[in-house]
Amino acid sequence: MRGNPEAHELLAPGNLAAVLALLAESPGEWTPIAGGTELMVAHAAGRLDAKKLVSLWGIAEMRFTRSEADRFVIGAGATFGDLRAHAELAAELPLIAKAASWIGAIANQNRATIGGNLVNGSPAADSSPAMLAYDTEVELISVRGTRRVAYSAFHTGYKRNVLAPDELMLAIHAPRRFAKHRQYLRKVGPRRAMAIAKVALGATALVENGAVNEIRLGAASLAPFPTRLHKAEAALQGRQVTAETIETACSELLAEARPIDDIRSTAEYRRHVGANLLKEFLLELGREPVP
């Protein structure tokens, strides 16, 4: 334990309004902490810079999953355990439950929250490819009110996002319109559990009249932040899935991916395996009729 608990202040106001008021009072001074699976690791390593923290854990207004007619609204405070346990969500948007099952292991899933995962903004975030593939929006809140932003526009750089200093992520809005889409999610990590993605790909695609009518590819660890693969998508949009379009789409992915070399893997490996994942998805897409 390299951090000093006495060097940090932690408040737990217990309700959303009080947290927002605190953030509004001195914007940028307070760091929200939910399940602690990121910040407490930094704390133990003596790398937690934040001196003032405010706890989001146990705030009921943030921990929920609500089905509406056209969408699921997932509270930012929902844990990955909550998401796995939500039968309706798992049935309709299975990639979310699948991604949730890949977070660390059970103890991590019981504490890590979807909002924390997205706000933390790791390029390797497990939930991001699914969130990108499902065309989700994030709802942000402050004392000034709420606003909604496409998740694909949420990240602006390595560990940077559009949140204002007084804002929190309140919820994720996931549209319920993917029943006819072919869906794909695969994470490539160093082992089967307790793994940080070397590369991951989430995808949804709708094939109509023999052509790709709608496609979204969300990738982890192929750029400084989780991102859509717009060029690969463009190579497929409106086209038939053939050996040629698969080849073109994979080339586009290889061209647009900007992975890095680090202690966890190499850029070359990430780029090529990313392309292999895309190819695996497209072969499946081209082969089988959507039920």
Partner: peptide, 22 residues
């Protein structure tokens, strides 16, 4: 992983041993 003679992956999250699933 040694970088300039120092173990660069000196954390359990980066030194990968098999888990119960592996």
């Amino acid at each position: 992983i040694l970088q300039n003679g120092h173990m660069a992956n000196s954390q359990m999250t980066n030194y990968i041993m098999p888990t119960a699933e592996d």
